[in-house]
Amino acid sequence: MRVLAAMSGGVDSAVAAARAVAAGHEVVGVHLALSADPATLRTGSRGCCSREDAGDARRVADLLGIPFYVWDFAERFRADVIDDFVESYSRGETPNPCLRCNERIKFEALLDRGMALGFDAVATGHYARLSVEETESGESRPVLRRAVDPGKDQSYVLGVLTPRQLAHSMFPLGDSHKSEVRAEAESSGLPVATKPDSHDICFIPSGDTRAFLGARIGVRPGAVVDADSGDELGRHDGVYGFTIGQRKGLGLPGPAPDGRPRYVTSIDADSGTVTVGGAEHLLSRAMTASSPYWLVDETIREAACHVQIRAHGQATPGYVRRVGDGADARLEISLDEPVRGVAAGQAAVLYRPEPGGDRVLGSGTITASVPAATAP
């Protein structure tokens, strides 16, 4: 196959490209220039898409003996990931930019361009497993599963991909542990073998998300109110400075009168109200999600599942119902046990409970949650 290897400049994508070459594919390496300022350098494990990263990716490609190109996707990344991130926070949501990048850049923009140029698949350094099954009608359907290494599993951030996108994807690292990948890179002489992994949000290398958002959204003052009494406890400069479950940085003088810590329990961007309360207010037993993706038989309208709402969170047993079709389609999800900190904007990725609980069933973007105290 003709394979386009997405090379970020890190060890994972380097080994993924090397394995694609070793498997006999015709491989071309491509680095995505996602920063409007390519001179920006990473600081340790913060940031990415820098000139340093592009250089590292090129050195790996030279060592592997494959062609290498840099494609400028900075404008698309700004519009589809950065602007979406800012707008989502301004609505009081908690988005996952890595998930959005996978959905709209690596497996939409990149894949579309690659297929237009005659490539069969895109290979990345994500930790997930991908296989194919035959349906009753004789068609092939991709199967997305968790990686062998539970600590590096990235099936959650890939759960928003469509069957078509998955059918043209390759994840060569899914059957390996991270320690094995680094050892392979070192034994192969790859120059990025000991390079640290990127952490946090790649386009906020400072790590100060509140300052990043504040510079783009501006001051939008509102009230911080108590969940039980409704009393105003303080003021804030914008709901973008808060996320559901947040405990620190609330701008309040201390804990509740009874000594219990306060957490952000809800955010109303329209009124600018941030509500704080005890830990019990963070528990949810049900949620709805829009823009559903379905990776199994389309005739299945409801099923038992395991629900994961964070990239590295635990999956909770529950039940999902698909309601409506097209633009009005949504998921109604109930949980066997309450989950803490469900927030609008997060992705709910669903896994089949048997066998193994590692197969992705589908996903949706959370729009609302039902407090545990009021859930049926």
Rank of each mutant, 00 (worst) to 15 (best):
S45F: 09
L117A: 10
A147C: 15
P292C: 00
A39F: 15
G259T: 03
L250R: 04
V181C: 02
T94I: 04
I82T: 08
E103L: 10
V349D: 03
V122H: 08
E75S: 05
C49S: 06
I201K: 01
S291W: 14
E298F: 04
D83G: 11
R58G: 13
A128I: 03
S90C: 05
V219D: 15
A79D: 06
Y240Q: 04
V132S: 01
R322P: 05
H306Y: 04
R359Q: 07
K178Q: 12
H199W: 07
H126E: 09
D12L: 07
S291N: 12
V3C: 11
A183C: 11
D325W: 14
P261H: 00
E298Y: 05
A121H: 11
E298A: 07
G9M: 10
P191F: 02
A123Q: 01
P97Q: 10
Y319L: 09
D358R: 13
G259K: 06
R91Y: 00
G277F: 12
T209F: 10
A304K: 06
E75C: 08
E337Y: 15
A304G: 11
E280P: 13
S363Y: 04
G29V: 02
G174F: 08
P255W: 04
S284M: 11
G259S: 03
G324E: 10
A123I: 01
G151L: 04
M170W: 08
S369Y: 02
A223I: 06
D112W: 14
A14Y: 13
G114T: 01
V320C: 07
I300H: 00
P292L: 01
P338R: 01
